[in-house]
């Protein structure tokens, strides 16, 4: 049995980037009440790479949205770098997100109207900062796209677009990078490049939280959280793809 029982970790401490404290989320639908999350407590420590896995409808995406302050929990609270999200209004939340979080998801990560360079520079511009051209080019260089800075997203491949999105996240150096199926739409090679980039990001001190259903992708993480029916049902540390796949298939039975 490779899946350990879920235990509530000590969620305080200065090295914690994101704290989830007793999170629940329920929706009202025509069929009645749907409990998407039923009490999740977890601390994502700084400089770690965590993968969240689980079958469809297990609450992975809801968890990610709550952690990023994109949705409000029914009960419980979320802290980013020690700041509770609950008391913030839309503008404060936007500013916090802008300063501390980056996002990469499956597709449509970029504004088609802007060049790769402008897409990377946009968060800084939105924050009213002067654009450091060298730093933007440097971020693009780190994802291997220095030469394609002037291209627009429709002129880039899916993998290249994903790398631009990661360059954008790297450029503002957010504390936390949230990724939702970042390799879902990519071929194996492009996917590996993207995962290596995420791994490097974590190694350099940023926190990465990634939702995925691909055991190979999850194997790049330090820790894998397994979700089922809105609860954390298992954790694995430093597991390889085969171990993760076994755990997943046990869950899906």
């Amino acid at each position: 049995m490779t899946v350990q029982q879920a235990t509530a970790p000590g969620s305080t401490g200065t090295d914690v980037a994101v704290t989830l404290d007793g999170l629940t989320r329920s929706y009202r639908s025509k069929a009645g009440r749907v409990d998407a999350l039923r009490g999740i407590t977890h601390a994502f420590r700084s400089g770690t790479f965590t993968a969240i896995m689980g079958p469809s409808g297990s609450g992975k995406s809801t968890l990610l949205q709550l952690a990023a302050g994109l949705d409000e929990p029914t009960s419980g609270r979320v802290l980013i770098g020690g700041i509770p999200l609950g008391g913030l209004d839309q503008t404060e939340l936007t500013k916090l997100r802008r300063d501390t979080m980056g996002f990469v998801f499956q597709a449509y990560n970029l504004l088609d109207a802007l060049t790769a360079f402008d897409n990377v520079a946009l968060p800084a511009r939105l924050a009213g900062q002067r654009v450091d051209r060298a730093a933007v080019h440097d971020a693009l260089a780190r994802v291997g796209l220095r030469e394609l800075a002037r291209r627009r997203p429709p002129e880039l491949s899916g993998g290249q677009q994903q790398r631009v999105a990661i360059a954008r996240a790297l450029h503002v150096r957010p504390q936390v990078l949230f990724a939702d199926e970042p390799t879902g739409a990519l071929d194996r090679h492009s996917g590996r490049v993207v995962l290596d980039l995420l791994r490097t990001t974590a190694d350099q001190g940023q926190t990465v939280v990634m939702v995925t259903h691909d055991p190979l992708a999850a194997s790049y993480a330090d820790e894998v959280l397994f979700l089922a029916d809105g609860m954390v049902v298992g954790r694995l540390r430093d597991a390889d793809a085969a171990q993760i796949a076994t755990a997943m298939s046990e869950l899906e039975q």
């Binding site: 997100r97 996002f103 990560n109 504004l111 939105l126």
Partner: peptide, 16 residues
């Protein structure tokens, strides 16, 4: 919608 949502996601305030 999606493009505007993306802008909001990467840090644009509603006013922006």
């Amino acid at each position: 919608q999606r493009e505007l949502g993306l802008l909001r996601l990467i840090g644009a305030t509603p006013r922006q």
